[in-house]
Design a protein around this nucleic acid. Sequence first.
DNA 1: TTGACACTGTAACATTTGTTACTGTGAGAG
DNA 2: CTCTCACAGTAACAAATGTTACAGTGTCAA
Lengths: 210, 210
Amino acid sequence: MIDELRQNYGYLFEDELLKEIEAVGVVKELEANVTLIEIGNYIRSIPLLIEGAIKILREDDDGDELVLYYIERGDTCAMTLSCCVGQTKSEIRAIAETDVKLIMIPVQKMSEWLGKYKSWQNFILQSYHNRMLEMLEAIDTIAFLRMDDRLLKYLRDKAMVTHDDQINATHKQISEDLHTSRVVISRLLKKLENEGKITLHRNHIKILEL
Amino acid sequence: MIDELRQNYGYLFEDELLKEIEAVGVVKELEANVTLIEIGNYIRSIPLLIEGAIKILREDDDGDELVLYYIERGDTCAMTLSCCVGQTKSEIRAIAETDVKLIMIPVQKMSEWLGKYKSWQNFILQSYHNRMLEMLEAIDTIAFLRMDDRLLKYLRDKAMVTHDDQINATHKQISEDLHTSRVVISRLLKKLENEGKITLHRNHIKILEL
DNA sequence: TTGACACTGTAACATTTGTTACTGTGAGAG
DNA sequence: CTCTCACAGTAACAAATGTTACAGTGTCAA
């Protein structure tokens, strides 16, 4: 574990903290599309992401979904921190976008280290900062962009986190992530194809201009 | 200052911390509609809100606005914390919704206290948590509600933070806060009036059912 | 008092997004 | 091979929201 830890977090944390993490952290590997956190769950440990990407999404009372943002390696989930501290239920769902590897840290440690290690304090605050920025970006996207631009952004973001310009998803799945209907997505995808930005295939989409 | 401080934060912080706050904090009073933070500003102190309410809003590249949420007494601005820590520019604008009184704390202290006082640590983390929840609520609102419900929620929220069921705003101002057009707001307000939920007057609106 | 102007109401229309319905096609199961 | 079914394409229509234009009215300053 120590190797992967150093590789992703070595430049952030001092040796002593890395050793503590190694002592109490539990490595967990999950396959793509597995749900890590369900809405309403209580959370008792926080994840440090070593490999892969996690999709964070919101759901309303009718079960309609909306993807908020992705978390990548070298990062943690601020909503999780937030819930740990507040002892409240999770407000979001987290799904492995790709295969992921992460280190789970018990919540007591996270709290203890805050007073003990300046680097941990910075990491946590920085993490909150990053997540705030992601939330703002999500708000900008749904408030200020029209569906065609949102769709293009969605495809690009997805290509980014999977490191693959081929998007493996059906129109139905995309429409759920964007909280709209399948027909709308099919219509707009066809438009994007006509504009030469993507090519459409059964069950996958190729992005031409990133 | 110590009285107001104790009144709003006494149950949160220990005596020693309250004294430190008193020593370094600067009380600031501002009139309604004054801009506290402009997008792009660097921030060197964080506010503890004693009285009144602050409106937090986002702006896109075209200058179109959108109100995100309000901050009330006993709370602080997590975006400010976030920017302080990251040494980055503000991503949001903060405007006094009512007359406000606040205590400004230099950012170095905020950071120092994190290691020193458990209660401060909890306050900061709790504050991040609350702001995350507000952001999620903002996202829910724009993503899942239609404009008539958003408008009603806006009026209710505004009545709540001002402690006044009379909303002093023109249709134009409301439309800017909700990022839509004046005509749309006039249309929907008239609908709400016909439904018996509000009464309309020049420059103000009375909410009947809260 | 009068003129200017911001505020509000409303109609008519455009655009965007959502819905329903139907078709064709490819992939996998039997 | 063929049947089934999820997937995708498209038309026609409905609803929500945005835009333009104009009229009436209250307020304030000259």
